[in-house]
Every structure is written in structure tokens, then in C-alpha cells.
Computed example of a mutant assay.
Amino acid sequence: MPSDNLLKQIEFIKEIDKLKYIQRKTRLLNSDRHENDAEHSWHLAMMAIVLAEHSNEPVDILKVIKMVLIHDIVEIDAGDTFIYDAQKNHSNTDEERIAANRIFGLLPGEQAADLIAVWEEFEAGETKEARFARSMDRLEPLLQNTSNNGGTWAEFGVDYNKVYGKKKVIKMGSEAIWGFAEMLIDESVEKGILKKNV
């Protein structure tokens, strides 16, 4: 007979399969297909592994990977909020808190508390691991939009100031990656795929 812990863990694993159905506004690199949250989280985990040497400070890479893999699980219930949404703030909301408690609460108590704490740490963005994880979260859509002739910037009329304002979070986790990101943003303006209001 399976243990109570195992049954709870399997229930959680089945529940998070729903992340594969949460569509993001951004499209895959060089593609018209929208990315889903599971693909996004996987990509961030790989980016964190590959780019860890560029973090401003040495990080616990396993913790960073945990952060990026679980950070959007709450969107199963709360939905994806577009980072440039003018109506809804892209920050920790009451809906996300309720979702975190429900979804992570499917797990055994200690495991649920651990993942909620990791999720909260990512959302707060104050530790070196959270800062680096958040830099990955801001870099990936930048790579996507620059590969798609402006992607969501063009589709939703997002200008340079908004992009620069949201992307400068990258600097908190990695000065080196921020330098690269700034270069991509500037090149996007030069190519005309990102509008700079004067």
C-alpha cells in the first residue's frame, strides 16, 4: 500500500501537469507558437545552469533551479499576467497567494512549506538566488522578442521605456548579462523593432 506522503506527492505531480496548458504571451524563439509556462520554466532552469558563472555573487544553483521551476506554478489557478499589462500589476497578488497555498498544499506539510518558502523568496527578490533567478525570468522573453521582430512589443505597442524599466531587474542578478541585455535592447531600437519615444 502506498504511503500517505507518496499519494500526496503523486497528486501534486498530476496537478502541475496543468502548467503545460497555461499559455504565455511570448512566442518561442523564431516561431509563431506561444510558449507555455512549463516550457518557460524548463528553459529558465537550463539558462540558470548554463549562465550561473555570470551571477553577481556565487549562488546555490539547486535553489535557483527550484525557484525557476516552481515560480509560475501559481498560474495554474491565477493565470498568466503579461508583464506589460496596464491593468493588472505583475507582482505577488492575492490570487497567487491563494493558488500557492492550494497547489503546494497538496504536498506533505514539510514539503509544502519548503516550496512555498522558495516561491516567496523568489517573489521577494531579495536574496542572491532570487535576484539571479529573476534575471533569468527577464532575459528569456527578451531573447524571444528580439528573435521575433519585436514579438509582444510590437503586438501590444510596448515601447523602449517600458522594456528597459522591466528588464533592468537583470542587473541585480548579473551585471554581465545586463550588459548583453542592454545591447540587445539598443539593437532592437536601431532595427526598428522596439520604438523609442522622444
Rank of each mutant, 00 (worst) to 15 (best):
Ser3Arg: 11
Asp4Trp: 03
Asn5Lys: 12
Asn5Phe: 12
Glu11Phe: 08
Ile16Asn: 01
Leu19Gln: 13
Lys20Thr: 11
Tyr21Met: 12
Tyr21Thr: 13
Tyr21Leu: 13
Arg24Cys: 06
Lys25Trp: 09
Arg27Phe: 04
Leu28Met: 09
Ser31Gln: 05
Asp32Glu: 15
His34Leu: 07
Asn36Tyr: 02
Asn36Asp: 15
Asp37Gln: 11
Ala38Asp: 07
Glu39Gly: 03
Glu39Thr: 03
His40Phe: 12
His40Lys: 09
Ser41Cys: 14
Trp42Pro: 00
His43Gly: 02
Leu44Lys: 06
Met46Ala: 07
Ile49Met: 10
Ser55His: 08
Ser55Thr: 06
Asn56Glu: 10
Asp60Ile: 07
Ile61Trp: 08
Lys63Leu: 13
Ile65Gln: 08
Lys66Tyr: 05
Lys66Glu: 15
Lys66Asn: 14
Met67Asn: 09
Met67His: 01
Val68Met: 10
Ile70Cys: 13
His71Arg: 10
His71Ala: 03
Ile73Asp: 03
Ile73Gln: 04
Ile73Trp: 02
Gly79Cys: 02
Gly79Ser: 03
Phe82Asp: 07
Tyr84Ser: 06
Asp85Asn: 15
Ala86Pro: 07
Gln87Lys: 13
Gln87Trp: 06
Glu95Asn: 11
Glu95Met: 06
Glu96Leu: 01
Arg97Glu: 14
Ile98Arg: 13
Ile98Ser: 12
Phe104Gly: 09
Gly105Asp: 05
Gly109Trp: 00
Glu110Thr: 08
Gln111Cys: 05
Gln111Asn: 07
Ala112Tyr: 08
Ala117Ser: 15
Ala117Tyr: 05
Val118His: 02
Glu121Pro: 06
Glu121Lys: 08
Glu123Ile: 01
Ala124Thr: 06
Glu126Asp: 11
Thr127Pro: 14
Thr127Ala: 12
Thr127Leu: 11
Ala130Leu: 12
Arg131Asn: 09
Arg131Tyr: 03
Arg131Val: 02
Ala133Gln: 07
Arg134Asn: 12
Arg134Met: 09
Ser135Met: 13
Arg138Trp: 01
Arg138Phe: 06
Glu140His: 09
Pro141Asp: 04
Gln144Gly: 01
Gln144Leu: 04
Asn145Leu: 02
Asn145Lys: 02
Asn149Arg: 15
Asn149Trp: 06
Asn149Lys: 15
Gly150Leu: 05
Gly150Lys: 02
Trp153Gln: 03
Trp153Arg: 01
Ala154Pro: 09
Ala154His: 12
Tyr160Gln: 04
Tyr160Leu: 04
Tyr160Trp: 12
Asn161Val: 00
Tyr164Pro: 00
Lys166Trp: 08
Lys166Ala: 11
Lys168Glu: 15
Val169Asn: 01
Ile170Asp: 05
Lys171Asn: 13
Met172Arg: 14
Met172Ser: 12
Met172Ala: 15
Gly173Trp: 02
Ala176Ile: 14
Ala176Trp: 05
Ala176Glu: 15
Ile177Gln: 12
Ile177Tyr: 00
Trp178Pro: 05
Trp178Ala: 02
Gly179Phe: 07
Phe180Arg: 04
Phe180Asn: 01
Phe180Asp: 07
Glu182Arg: 14
Glu187Cys: 00
Ser188His: 06
Glu190Leu: 11
Asn197Leu: 10
Asn197Ala: 05
